[in-house]
């Protein structure tokens, strides 16, 4: 039985189990505008640093503080007037700082959201232009690529604790469109990117050097890198394929694990992560955290894979409210945050 609490945070607690997922909470944003993203962020609320949920609608971004019993209270809302919000860009180990990307189809602006000492909500413009890819990194850093082929630029920005100032460094451009960035776990000075021409590129963040450009084959064009691990001289990279073609009998791998030798630029496919039989859909949105990968599919279903086990461990079918449209892992625990366009965000423990 579901129990629905009063607004602002409607709470559902029941014993519904879907594979390894258990619904523990539901946040309902009363705003009428379309929901676009969710994430978690460290925030100091009433003198105490805690993990909060942050939700984005078209023209608002809201911070939710955790109460007892998986209930949530909205504490801050930043408003935007001209350009709609496209995505939240968390800076993983930062406190009281988060970035958002604004734009229509493509990112036009990146803004930093924070609070002043007197608790006033602030936002500052970090970058504007034709932004192709962006990622928040550890140590209050953000990397973004912008411009067209001829004036292509990759910038690394480091924010101060208060968010008032930033240092900017330029990384060497691979001279082609970057689709996504990924941190390399275990190597804090390394950064990875995937490009439109099916290359994987590696930078040294300390020196800004472009270390290698590696072709990974044309079988999966426009792959998105999600995370990478460095081990025993090899790079293990998790990719997704938004443009993968479905093969009716077996579907298409939603994620793929490949191994690359950065010295030789040779790579080998290790494992595809496909949907269970009877399910189809292409990757729309998703995130990888540690050994868990989650994706929203074109079918409106969310699927979860354990990258070590190699198979799908949970499926979240569209519910009576509609299809899923975005999914994230919480930063601090094994919770899955699943969102719908109507403003509902469901929290599942995994």
């Amino acid at each position: 039985q579901a129990k629905v609490a009063e607004d602002p945070a409607e709470i559902w607690c029941d014993s519904l189990k879907l594979g390894n997922l258990q619904l523990v909470s539901k946040l309902k944003n009363p705003s009428d505008s379309c929901s676009v993203d969710v994430s978690t962020v460290w925030w100091e609320v009433t003198g105490c640093k805690e993990s909060c949920i942050i939700t984005a609608c078209e023209f608002t971004v809201s911070l939710w503080k955790s109460l007892d019993n998986w209930q949530w209270r909205k504490v801050y809302t930043w408003h935007f007037t001209e350009i709609p919000v496209l995505q939240i860009i968390p800076l993983w180990d930062a406190c009281n700082l988060v970035c958002v990307a604004l734009g229509h189809l493509e990112i036009r602006e990146i803004r930093l959201l924070f609070c002043s000492d007197d608790e006033c909500l602030k936002q500052s413009l970090v970058k504007s232009g034709n932004i192709k890819a962006v990622l928040g990194l550890r140590h209050k850093r953000l990397v973004c690529s912008n411009g067209t082929l001829h004036d292509h630029q990759v910038d690394l920005m480091t924010f101060s604790r208060s968010g008032r100032s930033k240092e900017k460094q330029t990384l060497m451009s691979p001279e082609e469109t970057i689709l996504a960035f990924a941190e390399v776990q275990g190597m804090q000075d390394a950064l990875l990117g995937t490009t439109l021409m099916s290359n994987i590129v590696i930078w040294n963040l300390k020196t800004g050097q472009l270390l290698k450009k590696m072709q990974i084959g044309n079988s999966y064009q426009a792959s998105i890198c999600h995370t990478a691990y460095s081990d025993m001289g090899l790079l293990f990279v998790v990719l997704s394929h938004p443009h993968g073609k479905e093969i009716e009998s077996m579907g298409s791998p939603v994620f793929r694990l490949i191994v690359i030798n950065p010295k030789t630029a040779l790579s080998v496919d290790i494992r595809p992560y496909s949907l269970p039989q009877g399910h189809t859909g292409r990757f729309l949105d998703g995130e990888v955290k540690d050994n868990l990968a989650a994706a929203v599919l074109t079918s409106g279903t969310i699927a979860v894979w354990d990258l070590f086990l190699g198979h799908c461990t949970a499926l979240l079918l569209p519910n009576s409210d509609g299809n899923w449209s975005f999914v994230k892992w919480s930063g601090t625990d094994s919770c899955l945050l699943a969102g719908q366009k109507n403003g509902s965000v469901f929290v599942y423990s995994y």
Binding site: N204, L211, N261, P262, V268
Partner: peptide
Amino acid sequence: CSESDLGPISLNWFEELTSEAPP
């Protein structure tokens, strides 16, 4: 995978590529 698939592996690949790459 083996060295026959991926070529010779170096544990210090990051430092080596940094010293080889243009500044």
